[in-house]
Amino acid sequence: MNKLYFKIVLIGIVFLSISCEEKIELDIPNQTPRMVVQGVLSPGENPVIDLRKSYTIAERIIDEHMNMQQIYFPDLRLYKDNQLVASFVVNPLDPFSYSLNYNNFKVGEKYVLRGSAKNFPDIYAETVIPSKPNVYITNFEYSSISSNDYKFSLKINIQDNPDEENYYAYTLVSNNQYYPFYYTNYEGESNNQQDPSITQINYEFYVNDKLFNGKLKTILLDQFGYMINNWGFKAQETFWIECRSITKDYYDYKISTNKQGNNDFDIFAEPVLIKHNITGGFGVLGSSNIQRYPLTIQTK
């Protein structure tokens, strides 16, 4: 009898564990490849955007087959007030890089990108050039000093324009190198936790308009690591606090792609929907306006 029950239990476990995997067809819209644009317009800079095709779910993705992403002979044009500004031209050394010989972008101007290519739906995107951030540094202090090295902290004031929905990105840069901050927050709040309105992406901090809402806010920055030993600064060097006003579309795109990347390995995480502004395609056409503040640091 015991043997019988043993067999019954084993059979039960086997049956419960039996599973079957099979490929299925689902009724999902938008199954064709799309044009993907990722680029930013900034006053004084000739824009360079990345254009490539998306993979559909039916295509097998192989890293080394980068040419699968290439779009041949696309027509990409930028318009202002329905007037053609210029057409984008492909970089002969990089088939995904398209540049525009134009940099006279003015605050408040609306630009429209239209694109078409064979076998792809047409794309459309628009963006408005934001005003420069009204930023000034109110305090600079050394937070830690060793014999020949130092860390520092900064207070940056941003006076938000109440008439615009502005989002900001700021970072510390020198000689085209970015330096990480240890911590950032805004004044008047607990220093124990970073405000959810501030998101760090690589060495840049992205700030939601909710944080300001047309008011003056002071942001605290603390340096992570010693400048000379950790980051290879010279004893005396000039660097910049770089602060950009960015459009909401660009902010949303950055935040959502970053969130998706952060949760790539968490099987329990909810899917992150990417907030793109390319009608008919994917990606983002954003715009920004940069303000740079030089600082010269000396070791004591």
């Binding site: 689902l26 999902i28 819209p29 938008n30 199954q31 490849p33 799309r34 993907v36 990722q38 990345d50 490539r52 095709k53 998306s54 993979y55 559909t56 779910i57 993705i61 992403q69 995904f96 950055k254 792609t257 990347g261 994917f282 990606g283």
Partner: peptide
């Protein structure tokens, strides 16, 4: 469910 993929080039 996913409907497409593309490379992040930011």
């Amino acid at each position: 469910l996913p409907i497409g993929f593309y490379q992040n080039t930011q």
